[in-house]
Computed example of a mutant assay.
Amino acid sequence: MKLTLLRNATLKLVYGGRVFLIDPDFGSMGSRRSFTGRAQNPMVPLPQPIEAILDGVETVIVSHLHADHFDDEAKQAVPKQLPLICQPGQAETIVSAGFTDVTPLDRDLTLGPILLTRHPAQHGTGAVAETMGPVMGLSFQAPGEPTLYWCGDSVVYPPLLDAVAVTRPDVIVTHSGGALWDETLIIMDAEQTIALARACPEAVLIATHLEALDHCMTSRKDLRAAAEAGGIDAHRLRIPADGETVEITAR
């Protein structure tokens, strides 16, 4: 597998002979409102032109409809005929934007040799999670590939830990920016990311969703320092820069 972090949660994944684009947010730097007054969002530019990002993409995955996961620019730029996978209840909205091949993923989906499985995720806790709305995690399995578990916009909570324990992934992609909403954590921060690494000692973690939105309070430097203090080395926790590709082979 080859995973390229483009910006925030936008990923390009080469897996099982297929090229996926995950949570496309193509907005220009500073084009959306601030959440905290620190800066307009996104706070950083895309590391590649949109045309280069879309080159070779065969399947699009949209975890949920927040703008930093599927924005207006992406809705315009992504070819409407590309197969697009979303969570139940959001297909109609995506179809209304002109997309013609939309599949809500309720549980499992087979794409050639690849098995995709939807898993629970929770975008915060309590009333804030209700405000954020439904999100999803996803696992990828294919012969000759490492099993990949993508947590999505989720905090660490018991159903996620249970799903990871059942899946036993080789690679876990986390959203680790410590975003806050009404002073409530809505994705993992450094402490939760390290806790997940300890709970899955055989997995390599790849941390994303960092340093692109003004309500994300955990930096790459913060996360690396917490990992070092917690005995999690740089091989076990990868923290790619925007535009960087991580390649991992099956064990």
Results as ranks from 00 to 15, higher is better:
Leu54Met: 11
Ser31Val: 04
Thr93Tyr: 11
Ile50Thr: 07
Ser154Trp: 03
Val95Arg: 15
Met136Thr: 08
Arg107Trp: 15
Ile61Asp: 08
Gly56Lys: 00
Val19Pro: 02
Glu130Ala: 13
His66Cys: 01
Val57Phe: 06
Glu145Leu: 01
Ala142Gly: 10
Ala121Gly: 12
Thr147Asp: 12
Pro47Cys: 06
Ser63Met: 12
Met136Lys: 04
Leu148Gln: 01
Pro45Asp: 06
Ala127Asp: 13
Pro79Gly: 08
Ile114Ala: 07
Arg107Gly: 13
Ala142Ile: 05
Asp68Leu: 05
Ile61Met: 07
Leu46Met: 13
Thr100Trp: 01
His64Tyr: 14
Val135Ala: 08
Gln90Trp: 04
Gly98Val: 12
Leu84Asn: 06
Gly37Asn: 03
Trp150Val: 15
Ala129Arg: 01
Met43Leu: 05
Leu46Val: 03
Arg33Ala: 14
Gly133Asn: 06
Pro83Met: 02
Val44Ile: 09
Gln76Arg: 15
Gln90Lys: 11
Cys151Glu: 03
Glu58Tyr: 05
Val78Pro: 00
Glu130Ile: 06
Tyr157Cys: 14
Pro120Gly: 09
Arg38Ser: 13
Thr131His: 05
Thr103Trp: 03
Leu54Ser: 03
Gln40Leu: 15
Val19Tyr: 02
Pro47Thr: 11
Pro79Lys: 04
Ser63Asn: 14
Leu116Ser: 06
Leu111Ala: 12
Leu116Asn: 07
Phe140Asp: 03
Ser139Trp: 04
Pro83His: 06
Gln122Asp: 01
Glu73Ala: 15
Pro120Met: 11
Gln48His: 14
Thr93Met: 12
Thr125Pro: 00
Ile94Arg: 05
Phe26Asp: 04
Ala74Val: 00
Leu46Trp: 04
Leu65Pro: 00
Gly112Arg: 11
Phe99Tyr: 13
Pro83Phe: 08
Asp55His: 15
Val102Glu: 09
Ala121Ser: 11
Ala121Cys: 10
Asp25Gln: 01
Ile61Tyr: 02
Glu145Gln: 15
Lys75Val: 06
Tyr157Trp: 15
Leu116Ile: 10
Ile94Trp: 09
Pro113Asn: 09
Pro45Gln: 08
Val78Ser: 07
Tyr149Asn: 01
Thr117Asn: 09
Asp101Ser: 11
Val135Arg: 04
Arg118Phe: 14
Glu145Ile: 07
Leu84His: 10
Ala77Met: 09
Pro134Met: 12
Ala129Asp: 07
Ser34Trp: 10
Ser96Val: 00
Leu138Pro: 00
Gln141Ala: 14
Phe70Leu: 13
Ala52Lys: 14
Ile61Asn: 00
Pro146Val: 09
Thr59Cys: 15
Gly37Lys: 09
Pro158Thr: 04
Ile53Met: 13
Asp106Trp: 08
Gln122Glu: 10
Ala67Tyr: 10
Leu46Ala: 08
Asp25Lys: 06
Pro88Lys: 03
